[in-house]
Design a protein around this nucleic acid. Structure first.
Lengths: 197, 197
DNA sequence: GGTAAAAACTAGTCTTGTTAGTTCTAGTCG
DNA sequence: CGACTAGAACTAACAAGACTAGTTTTTACC
């Protein structure tokens, strides 16, 4: 009866915390309601349904991740910026595994909600501006951005899925991978003649 | 009453097909049972529970993917092998999105089941042997393998999540990314002195 | 103090996951 | 050929969850 002061954001946050604790697919409406000391049905005043909630968690994660990356790359350039960028991204995924997996679901997010979310857009901008130091021209710049993001995202995903057998510490491969990426960006290969792309 | 001839493999296959059609997280015991013309409870004779079923789908996917990659790289070397390898991987993910996403779940697969599955192990071996043409020594070889896998896996993931805005076709970035990867592998950077890794 | 919007609730439906216990079926052995 | 058994599939049942409709607060404003 006492009003709990719910808002869409508070529900989302509770869901996000839960996701980090027990895994995204154990985030149920009931569990979130319990955590907030509220009945399940009450949540539906703030969030359309479970799918919507997941989408909101994903957007929250994107925002938070972007902020961390922005902090980590501020005032840096070249290799420093690259390393800061990648490490911030990876650390976010480690700190918030549940939120991060929410990011990976094929987009079915409410377009209206997506429009007012800065995170994803700003993340892309950050990547572009970080890579400007490497003096790439379009379309190479876009390709490089996508390669960079793919590598980081993929590494995190494989790491989480247990894809790296115990032999060599993932950490070491990560560092060397960034090294390699850095030199690749410094010597981005020219088009082979005959390649249409 | 008529015996349906269920086996763990047939249940897994039905689950996999369903996953590709409606998405992995709409794969329910009930839905699989319906598809097989059987009651839900009957499935539990062949599969421990839903989580187990998902694990089996993941292993099936790993096996299938490995086979495709093996075919695509057989008798090839260098850039040809690299491109064949990556394209086979990506094509499998496109052809079987549901199965592929099953692959990404943090490992909680029955160890006993995992032990007798060749797919994952063989996939790693294939990657190593494919990269031998590039004449890398350990630990660089392992780092390169991981970088390669990360890039491919990450690209697929971002693509599926709608991470690439419409501007430039993902396909073009993919091709150029493989180009870049190829030259990177040919000129893998030496250690910076002072780097412990 | 009265009122209206919205917050939270109660109650109920439907679907799903899972277990326990039962019946049927196929092949095996006397 | 008929009894026997392993296990395949079933029925029944329960708990938990997603979601809806309708009802009771609560709050803030007039």
């Amino acid at each position: 009866m006492a009003r709990a002061g719910l808002t869409a954001d508070r529900v989302t946050l509770a869901g996000a915390e839960l996701a980090d604790e027990v895994g995204l697919d154990h985030v149920t409406m009931s569990a979130v309601a319990r955590r907030l000391g509220v009945k399940d049905a009450s949540l539906y005043a703030h969030v359309r349904n479970l799918e919507d909630l997941r989408g909101r968690i994903a957007l929250l994660a994107a925002d938070e991740k972007t902020i961390r990356i922005a902090e980590a790359t501020a005032g840096r350039a070249g290799r420093d910026a690259l390393v800061g960028f990648a490490n911030a991204w990876r650390k976010y995924a480690h700190d918030h595994p549940g939120r991060y997996t929410a990011t990976q679901t094929p987009i079915q997010i409410d377009p209206e909600l997506l429009a007012q979310a800065l995170g994803p857009r700003r993340a892309v901008e950050l990547t572009y501006s970080m890579l400007r130091a490497y003096a790439l021209d379009e379309p190479d710049l876009t390709d490089a951005v996508r390669l960079l993001r793919s590598m980081i995202h993929g590494f995190i995903g494989l790491e989480a899925a247990g894809g790296f057998a115990h032999a060599r510490p993932a950490e070491d491969s990560w560092i060397r991978g960034l090294d390699a990426l850095h030199t690749l960006l410094e010597h981005w290969p020219a088009h082979h003649e005959g390649d249409p792309a």
